[in-house]
Amino acid sequence: MSLRVAYGARRLFVYLVALVTFGAASPALAKEFHVLAFGDSLTAGYGLPRGQGFAPQLEDALRRNGVRAHVTDAGVSGNTVGQGRARLKWTLDGLKKKPDLAIVALGGNDMLRGLPPAQTRADMDAILAEFKRREIPVLVAGMLAPPNLGPRFGAEFNSIFPDVARKYGAALYPFFLANVAGVRALNLPDGVHPNFQGIKRMVSGILPSVTQALNAVEA
């Protein structure tokens, strides 16, 4: 065998190995996930310019980390869990593509309005039941009540999110506003809604949980 033929055979062998190795992985790499951000003003980007809210920032963060994903913003400012429950079915029916993962981020307005935790629990239960019925995996972005609402309310409210997530086998991110709530520099002048940097911190906090949930979907 001449050196030229031997070299050509070697190149062919390397090409075939690469084709088998990377070709086998290409379906997973080519998949683009659809993530639904179902929430209130915290996902709707209240008070922020277009493109600076939770959904676009999460989509950018996922793509920077090698996860091809489209994040649909289904946040409605002011929504309680009950109002989210009321619009859930037609929201899902109106999507062009079934989500691979839903992030349920509701409860802040129930807490701010002092609504009975029992009602919030029933509404959250119904929301997760509907996602379960449609076989859509869920990541619950929980909420925590501030101490000034009292220990009884706090205990009843704070237990809703881990309890309901556990019941339906959903993933849980315990506090959606972790390291943002109460930090003046990360919130708009109203002291309630995160600014661009606040949303950025929220995204960096929840990103590992979102990635882990999508990996579970992929598996």
Results as ranks from 00 to 15, higher is better:
148 N>W: 15
148 N>V: 14
148 N>Q: 15
150 G>Y: 06
150 G>C: 05
150 G>E: 04
151 P>L: 06
151 P>H: 08
151 P>V: 06
152 R>M: 06
152 R>Q: 10
152 R>K: 14
152 R>C: 00
152 R>E: 10
152 R>V: 14
153 F>T: 09
153 F>V: 07
153 F>A: 12
154 G>Q: 14
154 G>M: 14
154 G>C: 12
154 G>N: 08
155 A>D: 09
155 A>Y: 07
155 A>L: 08
155 A>V: 09
156 E>N: 12
156 E>F: 12
156 E>C: 11
157 F>N: 09
157 F>Y: 15
157 F>T: 03
158 N>Q: 09
158 N>Y: 12
159 S>N: 13
159 S>A: 15
159 S>M: 11
159 S>H: 10
160 I>A: 02
160 I>R: 03
161 F>E: 00
161 F>V: 07
161 F>T: 04
162 P>T: 05
162 P>F: 00
162 P>D: 02
162 P>G: 01
162 P>M: 02
162 P>N: 11
162 P>W: 09
162 P>H: 04
162 P>L: 04
162 P>I: 02
163 D>G: 04
163 D>L: 12
163 D>N: 13
163 D>I: 03
163 D>F: 06
163 D>Q: 13
164 V>Q: 00
164 V>R: 00
164 V>N: 03
165 A>R: 01
165 A>W: 00
166 R>T: 13
167 K>Y: 01
167 K>H: 10
167 K>T: 07
168 Y>L: 01
168 Y>S: 09
168 Y>F: 15
168 Y>E: 05
168 Y>V: 11
168 Y>N: 03
168 Y>Q: 09
169 G>N: 09
169 G>Q: 14
169 G>I: 10
169 G>K: 11
170 A>N: 10
170 A>S: 15
170 A>F: 12
170 A>E: 07
171 A>T: 05
171 A>L: 08
171 A>D: 14
171 A>R: 12
172 L>H: 12
172 L>Y: 05
172 L>A: 11
172 L>C: 10
172 L>P: 04
173 Y>N: 13
173 Y>L: 14
173 Y>P: 03
173 Y>H: 15
174 P>Y: 08
174 P>S: 08
175 F>E: 14
175 F>D: 10
175 F>N: 13
175 F>V: 10
175 F>S: 09
175 F>Q: 14
176 F>A: 05
176 F>T: 06
176 F>G: 06
176 F>P: 06
177 L>G: 05
177 L>W: 03
177 L>K: 10
177 L>D: 00
